[in-house]
Design a protein around this nucleic acid. Sequence first.
DNA 1: ACAAAAGTGTTGGTGTTACACCCATGT
DNA 2: ACATGGGTGTAACACCAACACTTTTGT
Lengths: 219, 219
Amino acid sequence: MTKYDSSKYEKPSVTVDLVIFTIQERDLKVLLIRRGIPPFQGKWALPGGFVGIKEPLEAAALRELEEETGVGDVYLEQLYTFGEPKRDPRMRVITVAYYALLPWSEVVGGTDAREARWFSVYDHPKLAFDHDKIVDYALERMRNKIMYVPIAFQLLPEKFTLTELQQVYEVILNSTLDKRNFRKKILASGLLKGTRQTRLEGRHRPAALYTFVPQDLGA
Amino acid sequence: MTKYDSSKYEKPSVTVDLVIFTIQERDLKVLLIRRGIPPFQGKWALPGGFVGIKEPLEAAALRELEEETGVGDVYLEQLYTFGEPKRDPRMRVITVAYYALLPWSEVVGGTDAREARWFSVYDHPKLAFDHDKIVDYALERMRNKIMYVPIAFQLLPEKFTLTELQQVYEVILNSTLDKRNFRKKILASGLLKGTRQTRLEGRHRPAALYTFVPQDLGA
DNA sequence: ACAAAAGTGTTGGTGTTACACCCATGT
DNA sequence: ACATGGGTGTAACACCAACACTTTTGT
């Protein structure tokens, strides 16, 4: 790094791409955009865009997120940087991928004119570029993370039932969990505070509503 | 991403930076380079350099690694991408950080002319740029990873004693471990195969030598 | 009364921690 | 004989997995 003059070298383009997750209808959804221009015209792809020359990476990711979803204050985490020389056939593009978790209750339309749709993570069309790989990577990261860090709450509204919370885990892990063990563990964790409210939904016993209690960031 | 023409935009420079770890004298060491030119002239910094326009990111990291250490076939993992606009005072530089684990037995000199030295991770000078943050991040990542994934072997020669292995864990975690529990767990894991050899070192009972048995990458 | 989802405990097994002494060698 | 690090087992506890019935509501 010391002996190079960067101006002598051709520079790659740098973009951010976003894997935006939400949960709807007991399914894990990812937001995709239909490409209007080549390459991969007509194909679905992750939302993303170029990083401004004075723009922090995370700011670029947040900007794209807000353009596509209209939502600002959500969980956002850098995932991985993909830089294969041929991943974009036109030119060298290095992309810093992020993933975001969005409560279904906050999903509104984006302001952007591009065609956007939510697809099941488990059933979506083949994507442009290496975006299938990026989605797989995001899913794997999220599955690991949810075992240790309480990120599931980022996909729920402020108040939720234990069954809803369990469904978040089940949909992400793509497996079923034991109801009694799940409730025992989650209640023992101290992450939840019971509101004194219930929610009545259908002709059966109403469910108790809980909220997430923010952690001391034991630093 | 669809409606921009990248050529209209100024592009950032992209570099890779490496946190190269090894273990010597029961201490965790990191390789640093003394900067010969501004900015931060005379300061110590992580080895790194620009990514070639047609060069994969990992290839750039491996190239730097080999230039500095003369070693090729080691553990290398992408860490995080740092892109604060002002992290390099001269211009916009986005750096993709990697970390590498190097067996102390393979440490030779680099071919590069720059002044390089191994420093204790727990006692090193303040570094140039945001490199202190990168080292901290690498250490944190490695500490998490070693709990789940057998990366400790990447810091040892092919044959090693259980005490040496335990010292690797202790130096990385910066804590002491119980000898009996450590041996019980590591032997039960099936990661080790006993060679039938021992090593005699000092006036005490010789230690049994083990090798790492490569895992099925359960894909 | 019945259909539907909410809610609730116990048991066996597995893994983790804490802890102290004998062994093989060189001098 | 002693100094040095190598090597070994057990008991208490915490955590995890398996498993079935009762409760509350709307119709």
